[in-house]
């Protein structure tokens, strides 16, 4: 059977996101040379191997990233973007590549509480920062109304750019829990949806804001 959900519910999507987060490797399972696949016990052995055998190639760096609250040790090429490392090393595919030049917002993540474009950041320069991706938002019950309203109002068509919009929306609501329609459109103005759902996001977010406010008051 296909591995795609027959019918995605908020619960099943959230569980898949949780599974993706759980599967993020805390450290590389094996230290292997990305050029010739030779395996080593430690990063420093790999470094020695590079110095000896691939002196003209760019050697991988050992870095530590804090992604969705989890600290992951990585051995990566220093020219990889955060977007690439999230996908190819950590298995997180929620940040999407569209323009790859900082002009579309599909790869938006939250870094130290602020929205940022993961295609336009070197992963090696994100050490020591708190990185939050759409998967982290998807597993947090607080943001369920937001996801729910996105789905109920079709604030997506093909859905490719949607996680980027959702992350931008979450970053906005973190700072400003009761935004106006203009503030929403302003905060999302770096996100491009090629299907043309631009006018639909503010409606979904405003509906979510109402529900989230009601939840807050219910919970005292």
């Amino acid at each position: 059977m296909p591995n795609q959900p027959t019918r995605a519910t908020l619960q099943s999507a959230s569980e898949q996101a949780a599974a993706a987060l759980a599967a993020m490797p805390l450290r590389p399972e094996v230290v292997s040379c990305p050029l010739c696949s030779r395996q080593f016990l430690t990063y420093s052995e790999l470094s020695e191997h590079y110095a000896a055998d691939h002196a003209d190639s760019v050697a991988p760096a050992a870095i530590t990233l804090n992604v969705n609250g989890k600290t992951c040790e990585l051995i990566i090429e220093p020219y990889l973007t955060l977007k690439q490392v999230l996908q190819f090393h950590l298995g997180l595919i929620g940040a999407k590549e569209m323009c790859d030049r900082g002009a579309c917002g599909s790869c938006t993540v939250i870094i130290n509480g602020k929205p940022a474009l993961s295609c336009n950041l070197l992963a090696a320069e994100c050490e020591g920062k708190s990185i939050e991706t759409v998967e982290g938002i998807a597993v947090n019950p607080r943001w369920r109304p937001l996801i729910d309203q996105y789905c109920k109002w079709d604030a997506m068509q093909c859905g490719y750019c949607t996680p980027g919009f959702l992350v931008s929306a979450k970053a906005l609501l973190d700072r400003n829990p009761t935004p106006t329609e203009y503030e929403i459109n302003d905060a999302l103005s770096g996100n491009i949806c090629i299907c043309g759902t631009q006018p639909r996001h503010s409606q979904a977010i405003l509906e979510a804001v109402k529900l989230m406010a009601a939840e807050v008051s219910e919970n005292g």
């Binding site: 870094i111 602020k114 929205p115 940022a116 474009l117 950041l121 103005s189």
Partner: peptide, 9 residues
């Protein structure tokens, strides 16, 4: 300048 997210970095 540019867009809200890009201005952050």
């Amino acid at each position: 300048a540019s867009s809200p997210s890009l201005r952050e970095t």
